[in-house]
Design a protein around this nucleic acid. Sequence first.
DNA 1: TATTGTTATACTCTATAACTATA
DNA 2: TATAGTTATAGAGTATAACAATA
Lengths: 156, 156
Amino acid sequence: MDLEPDLGLLFGAAHEGIQARLARALGDLDLTARQYCVLGKADSGTLTQGQIAEAALLDKTTMVVTLDALQTAGLARREPHPNDRRARVVVTTAEGSRLFEKAAAVVRGLYDEVLGALPAAQRDVLVEALTSLIATGGPLDVPADDPRPRRSSRRG
Amino acid sequence: MDLEPDLGLLFGAAHEGIQARLARALGDLDLTARQYCVLGKADSGTLTQGQIAEAALLDKTTMVVTLDALQTAGLARREPHPNDRRARVVVTTAEGSRLFEKAAAVVRGLYDEVLGALPAAQRDVLVEALTSLIATGGPLDVPADDPRPRRSSRRG
DNA sequence: TATTGTTATACTCTATAACTATA
DNA sequence: TATAGTTATAGAGTATAACAATA
């Protein structure tokens, strides 16, 4: 544990760090990371709630409250699906689309700043190594059909 | 977003992947990651609940329930502090100490497996790059006095 | 009968507040 | 007065279940 790098700690700190910076940067635009994610997927103007939920790995009930918030903020709208009257297509408002572009630029800038802190060679290897670790079949791949329970029954 | 690597996604997937594998591996020993962490710190036999909580970045109330679970499982005990009758020193039982060694070996094996999936050169750069990013003053350092709120007031 | 989205609700996790006993 | 630990409780997030409308 002392000689070996603690991968759990390394990945955990990196994840927490980037999430904290994302949350702060997007928070300045009054967006949560999840709202930003959903807003981006809605920007195509063709996806239903269910499709966005699936793409964003959200439960459909979580999708409802996220969309409620975006709609209340005037950033997105539910529209009837042309072929399926059960479904709703999610579209961004003009303001929502503008805000998303702004947010996307902020996020790009943040990523550039973080990666810019590394020498170019390290930067490329970092991305390449992480990508291969989490790739399908890689040692960090979490199969969707056998996921870690999001609500543990274990205590303590 | 498409040409740039999505750092949030990369770090998130790596974190989720390693946590899932840790949870499964430790779960086979009936331990949560947190219990393993606390058990390891208790193994020195000199630290109080508060000190372990601080080292493990746990709230003292979370520490209480974690210790309750370890104590119920017969892996750790609270003992009176020799100098301060308010405080409790946490010690591992013989079984707890044995289980921790076993768990530590499992964790080391897991880390070896994950890093072993990478060419040696990539492996070293990955650890080095992550370490520098999360180091104090690095772009992913989250100062303790200005943390991301763990309980957000924002909705959606 | 199956599926989309909604509502109501329950559960987990974690922290805040109030308390006891010490310092 | 301040601190270590405990208890009770509340908040936030997310899921499960039941439901309405539609396929």
